[in-house]
Computed example of a mutant assay.
Amino acid sequence: MNESGHKADQCVGLAIAGLAASLLPGALAALVELKLSDNAQFRHLPGACKLMGTAVVSGDQTWRSRLSGCRGS
C-alpha cells in the first residue's frame, strides 16, 4: 500500500474510533489502552495521542496527564 493509502486508512480509523467513543461508554478508554498496548498489531502511539488530545479538547480532562507521554510522537 502506498503512503497516501496508509494515511487514508488512519483517518478512517480515527473517525470510526471517535464515533465509537461517542456512542459507547468506556470505548475511548478501551481504544486508547489498545493503542498503547505492547501488542504489535494494535500499538499505535500517534493514534492514542490523537484520541487523548481530542478527548481533552472536548472537555474530558482525565487524559490531560497522559498526554505528556505524547510529546514528540
Rank of each mutant, 00 (worst) to 15 (best):
L28D: 00
N39E: 14
P25H: 03
A27M: 09
R43M: 10
L14K: 00
A27G: 05
I16H: 08
C11L: 15
A20N: 14
L34Y: 07
A40L: 13
A17R: 00
G18K: 04
A30P: 06
V12F: 06
L14N: 02
D38Y: 09
A21S: 08
V12W: 04
L34D: 09
G13K: 00
G18W: 00
P25N: 03
A30W: 15
L23N: 08
I16V: 15
Q41F: 12
G18P: 04
K35F: 08
K35S: 04
S22G: 15
F42T: 15
A15R: 02
Q41D: 15
L28M: 13
S37K: 06
L23A: 13
G26E: 10
L36G: 01
S37G: 08
A27K: 05
H44Y: 14
Q41K: 15
L24G: 06
V32A: 03
A27I: 07
L36N: 05
N39M: 13
A20T: 14
A20Y: 10
L24N: 12
A21L: 03
L45A: 11
P25F: 00
A15Y: 06
G13A: 05
A20W: 12
A17N: 01
L34W: 07
R43Q: 15
F42G: 06
A21P: 01
L28G: 04
A27Y: 03
G26L: 08
V12R: 04
K35Q: 10
L34Q: 12
R43L: 11
S22F: 05
P25A: 04
L31R: 00
R43I: 10
L19S: 11
G13I: 00
C11P: 05
E33Q: 10
V32R: 01
V12E: 05
S37W: 03
R43G: 08
C11R: 14
A30N: 13
L45V: 15
C11S: 14
F42K: 10
A27S: 11
H44F: 10
S22Y: 03
C11F: 14
A17S: 03
G18C: 07
G18Q: 06
E33S: 06
A29W: 06
L23V: 12
A27C: 11
G18S: 10
Q41W: 13
P25I: 02
L23G: 06
S37E: 07
A15K: 05
L36Y: 01
R43P: 01
D38Q: 14
